[in-house]
Design a protein around this nucleic acid. Structure first.
Lengths: 110, 110
DNA sequence: TCGACATATAGATAAGCATCGATACTACGG
DNA sequence: CCGTAGTATCGATGCTTATCTATATGTCGA
């Protein structure tokens, strides 16, 4: 997982409203934009924007069906995120067990 | 772990420069502000600011020693973060194994 | 084809934040 | 007591972003 992807996911999780949308999708199975708008205190445009960010972070995937667009949670993406986190911080990873490959080194990001 | 704490940690991890600082501390053991400035492309003021955010997120802890201030990584905080993530998204948690307690439900955040 | 509905996009606004230079604070050494 | 060094804070600046309203795009039913 690239540093850019890691950053996108962290950012996606960092907004409370967006995180709640993700949780709803993860817990309730695939949901349409409208269904999410129905149980959120923000406008349809904002929900659509957050969904776009979640797709961009790879955390959900859209499935088109007629006029609707259903969004599905991608659990493997979260797994990859936590694994990357464990690797970067040298914390024994829960899934992969003992320390992994070589130290991670980014090119200086600015 | 409160939604606020979760949000703080996500935000702390979302900035590449700050994440690199955290990685350096996690991998290299406790480090002073000056040592970090020495290997980062940002100013001392910015490093100090990032360290403050990391402390605020509970990811590092300061230890004062004379004119220096050493920062230590707090691995348990990352563990709590990934566990909370798994719980909220109903992903089988790597550490705790099978699904946990009752569904998480925040008060609507706005 | 036309109207109604679902979703996305455009444009604007306000808040947040990463960054900097300058400066204040604190501790050490002489 | 004074200068130096490490660190934190202040104030400013430019960029990002969460949100809104309004509008465009796309799809279905009649």
């Amino acid at each position: 997982m690239s540093p850019g992807d890691f950053c996108k996911i962290s950012k996606a999780l960092a907004d409370p409203q967006r995180r709640e949308l993700l949780e709803k999708i993860a817990r309730g199975g695939e949901m349409s934009c409208g269904a999410l708008v129905g149980c959120c205190p923000v406008s349809q445009a904002t929900v659509s924007h957050h969904l776009k960010e979640l797709v961009n972070a790879g955390l959900v995937e859209p499935r088109k069906d007629g006029q609707f667009r259903y969004y599905n949670f991608v659990p493997s993406r979260i797994a990859a995120y936590t694994e990357e986190l464990a690797r970067r911080l040298r914390v024994p990873d829960p899934v992969l067990g003992p320390p992994l490959g070589p130290p991670v080194a980014d090119p200086v990001p600015t």
